[in-house]
Write a protein that binds this DNA or RNA. Structure first.
Lengths: 138, 138
DNA sequence: GGTAGTCCCTGTAGTAACTGCAGGATCAAG
DNA sequence: CTTGATCCTGCAGTTACTACAGGGACTACC
């Protein structure tokens, strides 16, 4: 019953855009291991698992280059768990940094918008504040 | 003493990449108002202020389309402070959403990496967990 | 067996916001 | 007058897709 699936079916199954699948093939990340006589991509269960893994990593915010590395490592069994954990932790710290940056940003913006009484006039501390060189950022 | 400045000087002054200035010109965002006989861009004080404003808004995370709008509004004086504040607040809420997403992401990753004892072997709950379809995300 | 509608194929272009480079002209200092 | 820094232009590359056009294939129904 579970023969190889076609692209559209896989896209629905894994909840991703159908074009993403072709894109991943074009960059040699994940490809269907077979084609039908008419040239339609046929995805085996293994193909699908590989793709699922890639999509999952992307969902977790890993860059495609990292996804590629992790795919190779886990498939060739040439990885130690230490290595994978290392990548994950590096990635995690990048996320933390990004969060910190964004919170800083939000604080700046909040401070700026707080200087405004939402009038209908065009002269306002908000705009002046936006025009001034940044203090908090930079 | 303060004649018009050239591109490199402006880039240093405003601490931005020199190519960014040319890019902003190419998309009709900010341009030097004059050129020297040899074709070198000459930035007046007003040009520089406009550019500074644009860069500041980018620093605050506004998209170029928003920067364009804000530039037009503030320059044509056809804006109300309410409008600007509205844009800022919309932008702010996007930032808050992004922060929330990233924190969720970090939590998922932290949970996953916590399942690992950093051994040198290739079989590890971490990898299994990465391969499984996501529960927290999606 | 025909036909309508949905799928799939390919190549290509567009998105955001820059960044970098090549090849050549110009400028400023010594 | 020469050397090195700066400037000019056009164009390619980056990340991670997404969308579209033009055409072939498959499925269901009558």
């Amino acid at each position: 019953m579970k023969g190889p699936l076609k692209r559209g079916t896989v896209a629905k199954l894994l909840d991703c855009n159908i074009e993403t699948i072709r894109y991943y093939e074009s960059i040699d990340l994940v490809a269907a291991s077979a084609r039908s006589d008419a040239g339609h991509r046929l995805f085996s269960q293994a193909d699908i698992e590989r793709l699922r893994f890639a999509l999952r990593l992307r969902q977790l915010g890993f860059a495609l280059a990292e996804v590629r590395e992790l795919l190779t490592m886990t498939e060739k069994q040439t990885f130690s768990c230490k290595q994978v954990a290392g990548m994950a932790e590096m990635h995690l710290s990048q996320i933390h940094r990004k969060v910190a940056d964004l919170r800083q940003l939000a604080a700046s913006l909040e401070e700026i918008t707080s200087q405004c009484q939402r009038t209908d006039t065009p002269d306002c501390a908000l705009v002046l504040s936006l025009k001034a060189p940044s203090k908090t950022l930079n």
